[in-house]
Design a protein around this nucleic acid. Structure first.
Length: 258
DNA sequence: ATGCCCGAGTCGCTCGGA
């Protein structure tokens, strides 16, 4: 079973890219972020014709998350992070699907830093950590997947020179991410490929895709009981090279049947 | 120290993204 996370950066303008990817890679479960569309504008019919059922939580212009399942129905558990500092932002969606609990998240960017946006990011991470502990305590197999907007280490970025002040790699940001992992979560891609340079995002500036100057910020964290089932992980880089591509590439894990 | 390249809405500009 393959589970993917993909920051689509506008589902309306990039629906063809999404459908091409679904048709070619056929992931079983998909977490989408940055729909940039209201819930009423979610392309249910196209997703259905592609063979997927979905739950989604949109928002006008910004944010927005969805969980898709191929030939299965995702059962919504919640559509807001408990005690979210600003629940008007659609950044979290959780569903039960294929015997898993899947949390789809779009963590705040946090720039400029310092400032209220960065404070909101750290507060959100605090709330995520609290909820993540609750999920672990249930004993269910859980995948937390999404755009974390966290560069875990300097090995996860092509070069830190022009990013020193960026919210994505500040010590406080990294400490929060490490504290999350310390609860018992596994960063699946890094776990399987500790020595590989892996990127999931290349910004539109300065020909960063062409020079492979990327970041690893899209993550799939798995609960302890899923580690023995972790078969493989990767990034569908070809998607980033398509015309009108999102600045993120789909990132996935493969799990053995439970 | 700032812009670069994008999508979306307020629409020919600003804002947020990362």
């Amino acid at each position: 079973m393959r589970i993917a996370t993909y920051n689509i950066n506008g589902i309306r303008s990039r629906l063809p890219n999404l459908l091409d990817w679904l048709a070619r890679e056929a992931p079983d479960i998909v977490c989408l972020q940055e729909l940039k569309a209201e819930s009423s504008a979610f392309p249910v019919k196209d997703i259905d014709q592609a063979g997927y059922q979905a739950v989604w939580h949109g928002q006008k212009a910004w944010n927005g998350v969805a969980i898709l399942a191929r030939d299965a129905e995702p059962l919504e558990i919640r559509r807001v992070l408990p005690e979210d500092p600003d629940p008007s932002q659609s950044r979290y969606l959780e569903a039960a699907v294929q015997g898993l609990v899947v949390g789809c998240l779009y963590l705040p960017n946090g720039n400029p830093q310092p400032g209220p946006r960065f404070a909101y990011k750290l507060e959100w991470m605090e709330r995520l950590r609290s909820h993540a502990q609750t999920l672990l305590d249930t004993g269910h197999p859980v995948v937390l997947a999404g755009d974390f907007n966290v560069i875990p280490t300097d090995f996860d970025i092509y070069n830190t020179r022009s990013w020193k002040k960026d919210a994505l790699l500040q010590p406080e940001t990294r400490a929060q991410f490490q504290a999350l992992l310390a609860q018992g979560w596994t960063d699946s891609l890094r776990y399987l490929y500790p020595e590989e340079r892996i990127f999931t995002f290349w910004d539109y500036f300065r020909h960063h895709w062409e020079s492979d100057s990327g970041l690893r910020i899209d993550h799939l964290l798995i609960s302890p009981d899923l580690v023995p089932r972790l078969r493989d992980a990767g990034v569908d880089r070809w998607v980033r090279g398509e015309p009108k591509a999102s600045d993120h590439a789909p990132t996935w894990i493969e799990l053995d049947a439970g």
